[in-house]
């Protein structure tokens, strides 16, 4: 779900850093746009994912279910907002229109930032991203810490699968009571933690044994290069950010919305 999908697509061919700065452009746009524009941006991002990223239905469905659950939690927070126009009530709890607007705006922003970030992860080889960061001046030890973190996702996913299988094979039935489930969950987490620590230790040994950190610089088999497609894509989005800033801040077309919520 949160790994590079390695599916050939237009976005996949773009260089990693152009895509990274594109995510930043999206993050700026969500704060310029009012909620209704953010919803349009969300649809645009979905279309980009489908047509330019070739993201399949299964992956997109999984991502959307997480994003919508998150949006629901955000909207639920609207109960804590006291407004003037009540929409509905559950017992003593009243949900106001103002709460919906404020929480809806936050949810829309978060959804767009998360969707663009997920899209970045799906269509970007993490190695190219790390190499790009180093080329832009980030010390390679820090950049590789991010990389090793990304590397750890498949290991951890595999580990969780093994432990889950092992627990089932060792006769652990799923407890029906909440307390029982919490105990089982704790057992699972402790096993995952212990195994992860052990794996981390072996990875640390391997990193040291492969001379990681022996020099202040290193060479690269796959050097980072900006791509024409990626840079063009980034320029379009930078222009969109500039245009939106002019429209919002300069021409006050989004008056009352900019950072209003």
């Amino acid at each position: 779900m949160f790994q590079y999908a390695r599916i050939p697509s237009t976005l996949e061919k773009f260089d990693a850093m152009s895509k990274f700065f594109w995510v930043i452009c999206v993050a700026v746009l969500v704060f310029i746009y009012p909620p209704e524009y953010n919803l349009i941006l969300f649809i645009l991002l979905l279309l980009i994912a489908i047509f330019l990223g070739h993201i399949n239905y299964g992956r997109l469905k999984g991502a959307l279910s997480i994003l919508l659950a998150l949006a629901f939690l955000f909207l639920l927070g609207g109960f804590s907002y006291k407004g003037e126009v009540p929409l509905f009530a559950i017992g003593n709890l009243v949900y106001y229109k103002e709460g919906l607007i404020v929480r809806g705006a936050s949810a829309a922003r978060i959804l767009n930032i998360m969707l663009s970030s997920m899209l970045f992860v799906w269509v970007t080889n993490p190695r190219d991203f790390v190499n790009g960061l180093v080329q832009l001046g980030m010390p390679y030890r820090i950049a590789f810490t991010i990389f090793v973190g990304l590397n750890y996702i498949p290991i951890l996913t595999n580990e969780m699968g093994y432990i889950s299988d092992a627990q089932k094979l060792r006769g652990l039935r799923r407890d029906k009571s909440l307390k029982g489930r919490l105990i089982q969950y704790k057992t699972f987490l402790v096993a995952v933690l212990l195994r992860s620590l052990r794996k981390t230790q072996i990875t640390a040994f391997a990193l040291d044994s492969k001379a990681f950190g022996a020099n202040t610089k290193r060479t690269y088999l796959n050097q980072f290069h900006w791509s024409i497609g990626g840079v063009s894509w980034l320029i379009v989005w930078i222009l969109l950010v500039v245009a939106s800033l002019i429209a919002g801040v300069g021409l006050h077309l989004f008056t009352g919305h900019l950072l209003a919520y």
Binding site: N125, P154, I155, K199, I202, A206, N215, R218, T219, L221
Partner: peptide, 21 residues
């Protein structure tokens, strides 16, 4: 599995020599 330092095969082979410049 634990001693793998990167995600892709060619990167894994290149990882050590890259560190050795």
């Amino acid at each position: 599995e634990g001693q793998l330092c990167t995600l892709f095969l060619e990167d894994e082979i290149a990882f050590g020599p890259e560190n050795l410049m």
